[in-house]
Design a protein around this nucleic acid. Structure first.
Lengths: 208, 208
DNA sequence: AGGCTATCTGAATGAGCGTTCAGTACATGC
DNA sequence: GCATGTACTGAACGCTCATTCAGATAGCCT
């Protein structure tokens, strides 16, 4: 029934295959988000993308291939989004504040913590995923580190140990986010942002 | 072939069934630890326990039943171990220090962070697991909270907000532990304990 | 027009795995 | 001794699901 709904005559059809591939990739991410890596089926992906199972396997070699590709897409987009998002902020304090909001999912959603949780567990058993998550983590931590250094240079922050502060603040974000992802009754995006912001003020000895 | 290796005559055989059940439960925990919840098979459990698949299903109704039972066992043991462990310490500072070591896996292993990660992801999709993890988290956080209050009463700690400090320190532990569980190259048990201890000193405004 | 290749589909295949089941062994109560 | 129930096993059974495959369709080169 999913047939040539349109005449198919002209230029459009040419770029269709790439579009299709992209759609499948997006669908894969969606499925992982809702069903998890372990629960993702080829049929789920095909249905979400509105294609046949065969096509999923045609473009990516296997289910694992599709999952890997989705992971890569996620990694790239995370990096781009983060970089662009932070670029828009003016000073170190604003950037830091923005990171609190990003982690809380208040700003433009850079990622979805449920997805990160899934990635972590997959990383427990799959070396590829392990590398991806390490890379993602490093990027986030580096971004944080840079903001801190910028703040120190500007005289806004005065951490006793910038390195340790960066690792702790990044880790704190992870830990708080777990509760958010798991819908712990006493955690909300706002509370997360506040808790993290206060910790940052403490760690970095901010003035206000 | 796994036969009556011993005469089987006397008193021993009477308590065998319960022993067997226990063995299967332990085996289940082990399998989850290595293969994860999603990767655990009835055959894995049976093999690890040295029994038939049939017996696993005989004692626990289904694979899910075995996993749930293992989860419950874990929860109970976690609580008992934690309570006993902390009881042995003398003052709030020692207790807090001990919690740092427990989290780092340096003290007597209260739990295994890989298992917690698995639990978190299972909690994303299974309400039972969600409740279990919430309960475990609450216990840990409450224990921390009590140590903090004890320290405040003793004049050792002076947090600006005890509640927030407890949540942050608990969350920080989770976040740091993720890196440990995932064998991030720049995280070791000692480093985790140090990082967390320093954060505690900062949050609680400890003297030394 | 007529092959050639890329894209796509739906059905078939077959492996893996949870669960069921018929049956064995052994202990206990009558 | 015989019946009954509990513990246990190994062999099916049947279902789910990734992967394969034999085409269908349509653009492209000659």
């Amino acid at each position: 029934m999913a047939k040539g709904t349109l005449p198919s005559s002209d230029s459009l059809s040419a770029k269709a295959p790439e579009e299709r591939r992209e759609r499948i990739l997006r669908a894969t991410v969606d499925v992982v988000r809702t069903r998890g890596f372990a629960g993702a089926r080829v049929s789920d992906i095909a249905e979400a993308a509105g294609t046949s199972q065969g096509l999923v396997l045609y473009h990516f070699h296997s289910l694992a291939g599709a999952l890997d590709a989705a992971l890569t897409l996620l990694e790239d987009e995370f990096y781009d989004d983060l970089a662009r998002d932070l670029q828009e902020q003016v000073g170190p304090v604003e950037r830091l504040r923005h990171m609190a909001d990003l982690g809380a999912g208040l700003g433009p959603a850079v990622g979805d913590w449920r997805l990160w949780l899934e990635l972590w567990v997959r990383a427990l058993h799959d070396p590829d995923a392990r590398e991806t998550r390490e890379s993602l983590d490093r990027r986030w931590r580096t971004a944080l580190r840079e903001v801190i250094e910028e703040g120190v240079a500007a005289g806004e922050f005065a951490p006793s140990d910038a390195d340790a502060a960066a690792i702790r603040l990044a880790s704190l974000m992870d830990g708080l986010a777990i509760q958010l992802a798991l819908e712990d009754p006493d955690m909300t995006p706002e509370r997360l942002a506040d808790l993290w912001w206060d910790a940052a003020a403490l760690e970095l000895r901010m003035s206000p």
